[in-house]
Amino acid sequence: MEFTLQRPEPGKWGAAVFSLLMHGLLVAVLFYGVQWQSRPPAAVSVELVRSLPPASMPETPAPPVKEVVPPKPVEVKPVEVKPAPVIKPDIAIKEPEKKKPEKKKEEPKPVPPVAQSKPVTKPAEKPPEKAPPMSRMEQMLANEAAKAGAVNNQNRLNQAAADARAKQDALNAAASLGSATGDWMGQIAQKVKSNLMRPPGASGNPVVEFKVELLPSGEIMGEPKLNKSSGNSSLDEAVRRAILKSSPLPKPTKGEVFQRELILKFHPLADGE
């Protein structure tokens, strides 16, 4: 008992050295680990490469398609063509805000000259009485409106500035990457974006994230995996469609840059202009 408490410790120095060695090793490991991790987040915004030509088309079409959707059974319907049951959208559908309507000129349709169709003189009311020249009330209202407009503009400016900053950050990040990787990412982004159609009814600033696995040819293997849903199934589906339509993705100019797995993070409603 006493011996066990006060026994000589022959391996003491060896152990100490070993321990020091191990600690040193650990520090080194941590050091290199941190080095590894301090690699800037790989992110690039599609604007970088907007002017790039579309990615080269594949020599080999026919992507391998594994998914088999069991065809729906033939639905036998009664004689009358019934309207489709209303499909409930998965989310509340908001009207898209902000975009400008296309400034297309209403094409002056060659209307056959129709004689004598005077506008219907509307009986009874409907308020359109002739508006008097700007009354004081109207001026006040106009001022009010102008102010509201100014506030909106300010908000938009702030938003634009924030966006610009975010884009600059992304740009910096991309610049610090090997340019081959940056180019490759830009080409992929460009191609997928060109195939993405924003479905009607989507609003806000949703983010959708898919993970795809690539063959060395750039072809997408199997189905893209939904990492993060936007909460709007139509939008998710539109993004999935765009990814699949973009297969094969462009190949990097330098083979060593190639990655088998890619995360595609979409901001479909963000201004990509």
Binding site: G33, V44, A189, V192, K211, L262, I263, L264, A270, G272
Partner: peptide, 22 residues
């Protein structure tokens, strides 16, 4: 420690906006 950063070195590609109309 060495392999963890390697395994998670996935590229994340950000895509802003949409390009197809129909």
């Amino acid at each position: 420690l060495l392999s963890a950063p390697l395994a998670s070195a996935q590229l994340t590609i950000e895509i802003f906006g949409s390009g197809a109309n129909s």
